[in-house]
């Protein structure tokens, strides 16, 4: 019997780094953003913005990229079929599109704007205010998209028999 160790390792890697990515996304949305609102009120926000946020963002953005690369490797020869939503690839294909949009949001909308917010890149107060709103909405968009993305990504495990997708 021939084994496919490469695909097995890519599947495992995709899940592990995917947990890191989406776990940190949920941390930002469900923990850090509400906590910062309270921390700003009592003057303790700098602990989060100086020590926690940069490190969380570091793991977050690279885990996002690693998740996409491992996912693409896992699709392998089925990559084009998935992104073309060919028959039999509808669920994983749309899941892949959602994951790709989310990766774009991380690197093009969230990270460059967070650099301005956290003072890693020079920005005026008005630029920071705009950056805050863009980064917030991109992060919330990813949280929203993560729900259908995860549903469709895990499709192969159960839904074919359960809901006929």
């Amino acid at each position: 019997m021939e084994y496919d160790y490469f695909t097995a390792i890519m599947r495992f890697t995709h899940v592990v780094v995917g947990v890191a990515w989406i776990g940190l996304l949920y941390y930002f949305n469900f923990v850090q953003v509400p906590a910062l609102k309270n921390a700003n009120a009592d003057g303790t926000a700098s602990g989060i913005t100086k020590h926690v946020a940069p490190l969380a963002l570091l793991w977050f953005r690279w885990a996002a990229l690693a998740t996409w690369i491992a996912g693409a490797a896992l699709l392998g020869a089925n990559f084009v079929s998935a992104f073309s939503l060919d028959t039999g690839y509808e669920a994983i294909g749309l899941g892949s599109w959602l994951g790709t949009i989310m990766l774009f949001n991380v690197w093009v909308l969230i990270w460059p704007n967070q650099q301005k917010i956290l003072g890693m890149k020079p920005a005026s107060d008005s630029e920071k205010t705009a950056a805050r709103r863009i980064a917030f909405l991109a992060s919330r968009t990813n949280t929203m998209l993560s729900i259908p993305m995860l549903f469709l990504m895990t499709n192969g495990l159960s839904h074919k028999g359960l809901i006929g997708l």
Binding site: P34, L85, E90, L137, T143, I147, P148
Partner: peptide, 30 residues
């Protein structure tokens, strides 16, 4: 109308609704 993404609950509800819409579209039109 308020943006549902401004609240955590609104974000989750929007995600669940989007999931139902996607499943319906995939099952019926793609």
């Amino acid at each position: 109308m308020k943006n549902p993404l401004d609240s955590i609950l609104g974000t989750i509800v929007a995600g669940v609704i989007l999931t139902v819409v996607f499943v319906y579209l995939l099952k019926n039109f793609i």
